[in-house]
Computed example of a mutant assay.
Amino acid sequence: MTAPRLPRRALLALGAGAVIAPAVARAQTISAVSAPFEVRPLWPGAAPGGEAVTVQEQVVLRNPNGDPNDTAFVHVRDPWIMLRRPTRPNGAAILMIPGGGYQRVAVSKAGGPIDARLAEMGYTVFVMDYRLPGDGWAAGPAVALQDAQRAIRIVRSRAVELGFDPNRVAVAGFSAGGHVAGMLTTRFAQDAYAPIDAIDRLPTRPDFAGLMFPVVTLMPPYAHGPSARALVGADPSEAARSVWSIERHVPADSPPVFIASAADDRVVPVENSLMLWQALRARTLPSELHVFEQGGHGLVQTDSSSAPAWMSLFDAFLKRARSPKV
């Protein structure tokens, strides 16, 4: 493939274990984001392939009595992308993809501490919402990949305007969002949707990828059950599982990949990260794996006043890694 070069609760919210609160009515009153955030739709009109979709989108509180910005999006019909601008841009951008086990997207239009810290480091940060495979979209398991490809194209389309290098665009995925980011990192040679405008002429290959406590494989015994069921059903064939197992489809021109997980993760087994790193290593691709002894799902550290340990390591990786020409 030749392509143009171009605090604890918040951490857990990025993961696959987000719980939908019953207070839907209250959650739907959450107001739109205020400055300095900017939220735009991913698609200029209706998202593609929605002719058979009948579900109604909901915004819910993850805790009925908690922070009103601690939200999850369910039955997503109108995915969006949020921008957080850095005070001192460093010339690079990061597209963040949150998790939710493919049951929901644990994200807020008001941002969170992770995108805030990345912006403090100088990154122009985009956070995306995405559609879910169980809601009847024509693309089925590839529907989130459609949104991710559209999102990274939107990011690159704004490089000149926002003052970052379109050849220094990273994707950072968390939990099931790590699976979406992993697909974006390995399936850029395949357009997941038909082009609809000039933005869709831009490349979808990230220059770098960061996968934090990611869902990677759909193969037993290490598959994350909810994600696997959402993607391929309750009783899939081995072939169906294999198609959506990222470690089995790593191309020779994948970008540099940073992986961080905890050995005591009881939601997504750390073997997911090990399997992907081994697949990258077999291809002699630039990659870095960090396995923390503790941290669970979310890589939660006891000192919530400081930046997560993985963040400084990821920052250092992005500064020294070089994305090979493709």
Rank of each mutant, 00 (worst) to 15 (best):
S175G: 03
R26M: 05
R187Y: 11
R62N: 13
P236K: 05
T29I: 01
Q149W: 03
R5D: 14
A239N: 04
S254Y: 15
V60I: 06
G49V: 03
L145S: 06
N65S: 07
A148M: 07
D67E: 09
A35I: 06
M183V: 12
Q146V: 15
T185L: 05
Q146P: 11
A198V: 00
F292I: 09
Q146H: 10
F164K: 05
G163I: 06
A181I: 09
I152E: 14
L83Y: 15
A52G: 02
A106F: 07
L118E: 02
R153L: 13
V33R: 07
D78S: 11
Q149T: 02
F213S: 06
H224W: 02
Q146D: 13
T2V: 15
D315H: 08
F126N: 10
M128H: 01
A159L: 00
G177R: 04
P221K: 02
L11K: 01
Q190M: 14
L276Y: 09
S237E: 10
D265Q: 11
P22H: 06
E288T: 07
T71S: 09
R84I: 11
R168E: 12
Q103D: 04
S227W: 04
V216F: 02
A27Y: 08
T204G: 12
V291K: 03
A119K: 00
D253L: 12
F314S: 15
I81R: 04
A47P: 08
R77C: 03
I259N: 06
T302W: 01
M82R: 13
N63E: 13
H297Y: 10
R187N: 15
G66I: 04
A72L: 13
